[in-house]
């Protein structure tokens, strides 16, 4: 454990920013070189979808912070209700409301 001084604190912020911006710059540069509608672009897209889904499921199954004070069953009930509503209604905001309400009810009742 070390304590950061003023300079080191800001150096840490700088490291975090650079650690993200490099991917944005690389993305912009690579995007203009990958042919649209080709197999590589299709693969990059599926990986982007899978990775975003992976982040979200990790937030839902192994959360940190305030969400960690709720039970896994509460969060899965909310997720399940939202997905079910989406498959039946195909309406985004309605399904979101179903998911959130089911989650809120589950916290109170289950």
């Amino acid at each position: 454990m070390e304590d950061y001084g003023f300079f080191q604190s800001w150096a840490a912020v700088f490291c975090a920013i650079v650690g993200t911006i490099i991917w944005r710059i690389a993305g912009v540069v690579l995007a203009s070189r990958i042919p649209a509608d080709g197999p590589v672009m299709g693969w990059v897209n599926t990986m982007a979808y899978a990775m975003v889904s992976a982040v979200l499921l990790l937030i839902l199954v192994h959360p940190t912070g305030v969400l960690a004070t709720t039970g896994l069953d509460h969060r899965l009930i909310g997720l399940g209700a939202g997905l079910l509503a989406m498959f039946i209604s195909k309406h985004l905001i309605f399904s979101l409301l179903c998911g959130i309400s089911a989650f809120a009810l589950a916290i109170q009742l289950v």
Binding site: R24, V28, V44, V52
Partner: peptide, 17 residues
Amino acid sequence: VSLANMRMLLMVISAAD
């Protein structure tokens, strides 16, 4: 932080597309 935000690479390419 780089690892946690690596998906930016894929998202930026996908969004640009």
